[in-house]
Every structure is written in C-alpha cells, then in structure tokens.
Computed example of a mutant assay.
Amino acid sequence: MVRCIPALIGGTVLTLTAGAAWAQTPPPSQAPIQAVELVPQAPGSAVVEELEVVARPPGPALWLVEKGGAKLYVVGSAPPLPHQLKWDSPRLNRALGEASLVLVPPEASVGPLQIAKFLLTGGGVRQPMGKTLESRLPPELLARFVSARQQAKRSAGPYKNWKPAVAGFILLSDFRQAAGLSEAKPVSTIERMAKAKGVKVKAMSQYRLGPILSSAGKLSDDANLACLNDALTELEYDAAHATDIGTDWAHGDLASVRARYSTSAVQRCVMRTPGGPRLLAQQIGQSADALNAALNRPGVTIAVVDLAFLLPTNGVLDRLKASGATITSPVS
C-alpha cells in the first residue's frame, strides 16, 4: 500500500493509496452505486469534520464505531509515509489490547505502484514503434519529467517505451523509493503491532482487476498527458513536503492530509478512464460493507482504511453513520 491509496487506488488506492482497490462490478440486482466525491474537497465528510473541530488526541486519526454492542476502531492511513517515521498512538495500543481481529486493505489495493503494474499488463500502453516518451512530450511537461526523474536518480531508459500515464506512475513510485517514502506504511507497521499482541490480521476482501485492465489502454493522448501532469504534480508536492509528509499523519492533522489527497494523481487519472468513476465508487461501497460486516461480530475489531475513502462526502464513515452506527473519536 502498497495498499492504499490511497492513491487512483495503499496503502491505495485509485490506497487509486488509499490506499484503493478494484471492485468487481456488482450484478444488476444490487442497489445502485452511490455517488461520491473521490478527490476530497471541503467540506467533505460530516463525520470527519466533527473530528476536526475538537482537540486532537495524540496519534493518527482514529474513530470508534459502535453498533449493537460491537466496537470497531477505524485507523485512517495515508501512504506514502517515511520509512523511518516514528509515531505512537496510545489509543491504538489500547484498542489492540481489546481487539481480536485487525482488518487491512486487500493485497490488490491500488496505489501508484499497483496501478502502474495493472496498466503494464493491459494493452495500448506502449509508445508506437520507433517512438520514445521524451521525444513526444510537450516542452513544459518534458522539462518537469526530466527534473523529476533526476530527483529520483533515474535515466530516461526505464520510461522511454511507456505512454505518459504509465511512465508518470512508475516515476512517482521510483521517486518515493529514492526519497525514503514507503507506500506500504502505515499498514505494514500496524500489522506488525497486531501480530506482536497475538491479534489476527485479515484482508478485508479480494477484488477483481479485470474491469480496469480492459480500459487501461483506452486513454486518449490528451488524457495520457493529463495523467502525467497529475503524477508530476503529486511528485512535486511530495518533494516539497518531505519533512512533514509523515508528521501531519502521525499528529492526526486531517486538514493537511486532505491537502495531500487533493493532489492524488491516481484518482484523477482513473476518473478519466472508461468506467473509472464507477469502479472507485464501488471500492468505497465495498469498504463500507466490509466494516458493516465487522460490526455484526461480537467483540472489538480494528480496521485500517485509506483516508481517501474516509475523507469524502458519502465516504466510508458517512455510510457507516447512515447505517445506524454511532461514531466518535476516542479521546484516551
């Protein structure tokens, strides 16, 4: 995350980060998919806003969801985070002491690295024979791309045969690796914390990637350039906020984290693919369904969900509240 994705998809996203993952298209008999603002803008989720106006307890954003005697602690993840980030959450530690299960995003969740891999397996994503990426980019995009790959300590070679959208996501992942940012965190850290306490860890569900693969090669030339522009914008944001990209999350500063997600390249790119908005909305719906199912089991469950799915209006937290759950932020 990486899972989500948050990002199109992270640990994605499209983790696309959150962490986000690709959901199977439901049969016609199921309820219609609810619309959602996938690139969070103010005011966003009413539940999230309620947390933002109270004093923030120490540690990452955490919500307590209660329904019918069951308890579900929801940890908002925000990949990528620095590999060496040190953070502490007394509330999460106490929740782990009570919990019998930790739910994490599925392995197929969507982050920049994952979406790049998905796109690479689809058709129509390579440059035409005899053409190279940098030889076909407009001057302004070319200058930004070259500067970004130099920051990532990469030559032109690894990207030259890919169309702009794919090259942009590969470069974004390469830059994060070079900058010491991990698309697997914080999920991997929370998994280790849970296993150290003997708490079972389970992926929320599995998703089929077929729908996105079928549309990956259908981006127009203009959409490819727009996706590259978005990837470079996200990369430039990460570079400019290298010292606080983890601190904001670790301190539960949702306003700053929201600003990060407003630059999410993967989400914006997926919204340009045929069927992309529907797939992303499905992912939020399936995440909410998985957490509602957890509230039907006795005891205490912890779930790690990309903030890209929690921040929007009609996101996961709003849907849980609409289903009858009570949501608060544990203060201790």
Score class of each variant (00 low, 15 high):
Leu141Trp: 06
Ala242Asn: 14
Ala259Cys: 03
Leu307Cys: 12
Pro58Thr: 07
Pro274His: 01
Arg3Met: 09
Ala21Cys: 10
Pro27Arg: 08
Leu317Trp: 12
Trp162Ala: 06
His241Lys: 14
Ala216Phe: 02
Cys4Phe: 11
Ala167Thr: 04
Ala231Lys: 04
Met1Ala: 14
Ala35His: 03
Leu103Arg: 13
Val75Leu: 15
Pro128His: 06
Leu137Glu: 10
Val75Thr: 09
Glu183Leu: 15
Val187Met: 08
Leu92Asn: 01
Ala294Ser: 05
Ser135Pro: 01
Tyr207Gln: 11
Lys71Glu: 15
Ile115Trp: 07
Phe169Arg: 08
Gly123Met: 02
Pro139Ile: 01
Glu50Lys: 15
Leu310Pro: 04
Gly130Ile: 02
Glu98Met: 03
Leu232Gln: 08
Asn296Gly: 09
Leu103Asp: 14
Leu96Ile: 02
Gly168Tyr: 00
Asp174Pro: 04
Pro27Ala: 00
Trp87Gly: 01
Arg136Pro: 00
Val316Ala: 13
Val257Met: 14
Val125Glu: 06
Val47Gly: 08
Tyr159Asp: 00
Leu62Val: 10
Ser215Thr: 15
Leu280Trp: 00
Pro106Leu: 00
Ser214Val: 10
Phe175His: 08
Tyr237Lys: 01
Leu172Pro: 07
Glu98Ala: 05
Gln84Ile: 01
Pro80Ala: 10
Ala55Pro: 02
Ala294Leu: 00
Ala231Pro: 01
